[in-house]
């Protein structure tokens, strides 16, 4: 029985427990949580705790107590607020609350939790970019409507992008749709990694449309290169 009122009473305890077992089964988990002094050092260091109703101490506590209901609540309502800066690694107990959060997020994605889908809304184009092209950030992402709060300088970059890219001395940086020039062979190898480590299945759980587009792009290239998917 947890210390807090169950915020998700409609979700069966067994289901919450099943997800928690997946978190604990991650090989990294034992080295991310050794127990908790409840000292709050992680909270003092945590940027997200300053701006959200969020606490790495609470995450560590819930995990250490195995408070299944609270962990499920955090997996839905809290984990996406974390900045993944790992300032909380200064924990005197050698915990990594941020690392526990990485695993909680991964389990949320792998199981297609509604909150994970919501958290990833508006994010698909980034996943497409990194998984499909091999570089996560490209110069052509710098569009004024995407970054209105970055001021007029973004407009200047996007207006003369192709020209400004040609004014870069390193030969690999003349690209606009990828961060640098990436070999076709390299991209194929990246696709093989995604296919052979279950990442494509994770994408299918959270965004079917994105999964379809990525699969089409990858299948074509992989088949051309003589790989069967």
């Amino acid at each position: 029985m947890g210390l807090f009122a169950d915020k998700y009473p409609d979700v069966a305890y067994q289901e919450k427990e099943r997800l928690w077992e997946q978190v604990k089964a991650d090989p990294r988990y034992p080295s991310y949580l050794y127990g908790c002094y409840e000292c709050g050092i992680c909270v003092a260091a945590c940027p997200s705790a300053r701006f959200y109703d969020f606490s790495p101490r609470k995450i560590a506590q819930a995990a250490a107590r195995e408070d299944i209901d609270l962990i499920y609540e955090q997996m839905n309502d809290d984990v996406w607020n974390c900045s993944q800066c790992f300032s909380c690694n200064r924990c005197p107990r050698q915990n990594s609350p941020g690392g526990v959060i990485t695993i909680l997020r991964e389990v949320a994605v792998k199981n297609g939790l509604k909150s994970a889908k919501q958290a990833l809304e508006g994010y698909s184009r980034i996943i497409y970019k990194i998984m499909g092209t091999g570089t996560q950030v490209s110069p052509d992402m710098l569009q004024p409507d995407a970054f209105p709060d970055w001021g007029p300088q973004v407009r200047e970059v996007s207006a003369d992008l192709e020209l400004w890219r040609r004014a870069l001395p390193p030969e690999t940086l003349h690209t606009t749709s990828t961060g640098w020039q990436v070999d076709d062979k390299t991209i194929i190898e990246l696709y093989l990694i995604w296919h052979n480590t279950g990442v494509m299945d994770m994408i299918a759980e959270v965004d079917e449309g994105l999964h379809m587009i990525l699969n089409d792009v990858m299948e074509e290239k992989l088949e051309e290169a003589g790989y069967e998917v």
């Binding site: 990485t102 990833l120 950030v137 390299t186 994770m202 994408i203």
Partner: peptide, 19 residues
Amino acid sequence: TDQTSCTAWNYYASATSNA
């Protein structure tokens, strides 16, 4: 040119990957 991103930015942002 035989180099990809480490993809960790995406991983720390979206968790759409694994160890």
